[in-house]
Amino acid sequence: MTSRREELAQGWIEVVSSTLARRVSRTELDQELHELYGAILEALRRGGVDAAGEHYAEVRALLNEISRNRARQGFSPAETAIGVFALKRGLEPLLDEGSAEDVAAYLALARLTDDLGMFTVDAYAATREQIISAQAEELLELSTPVVKLWDGIIGVPLVGTLDSARTQVVMEKLLQALVDTGSAHAIIDITGVPAVDTEVAQHLLKTVVAARLMGAECIVSGIRPQIAQTIVALGIEFGDIVTKATLADALRHALRRSPGALGGAGSAA
């Protein structure tokens, strides 16, 4: 395998690049695979075909990096693994002219490539997991905007299903926004929320109480009939929290209660 290094490497690269069809530049692939090929040869030379062994640390590191890059660039797991399995295919022609010894060596090598192939799939999956959880976090941030509706009044329009984690993020973001903007009123609009469970309702309630402790009032608007039924059925005490049918009603209420907002109309809470 060492003696026919260039020939084999070329055959390998040929197979891989035809699969990845111009989505990775030829030079990049060339460099990547030559490095990998060199590392595999080095590991073979130093002993063993145990893909999990210490001789293969360098090979695993390279494969890990290649797999991560492929995952980030949007390749499929198959397209990623082909990089390794193609090595086997590249060796096949050698079998025709080979002895029994060569066949045994080929089989050992085949097992090695299989193991390394599995490794790339694992590395690929791990990277995808990371990407997915990072995106979920981003989405959480994006889906909970806090907007300024008027001087001294902020609004939090909630859309979609509320789970406990998201409600907690909203809670903290809302309270921080009160401080940052000096707004004494906040409107939590849940028109776009199809349902709430006990935990979410409790979190909303705690947000309102926490805001009050800080010196601000929250109004909850847009409660759907089903949600109202849930709240009552669950026996959750909404107490003296102001609720309004629509965001517009809530805004009118907040304006009436903030003395500065409309040129001093009305009285403070």
Binding site: M171, E172, L175, K206, A210, L213
Partner: peptide
């Protein structure tokens, strides 16, 4: 805010 949440 963190203090208010904790008090609640």
């Amino acid at each position: 805010p963190a203090v208010a949440i904790t008090l609640v």
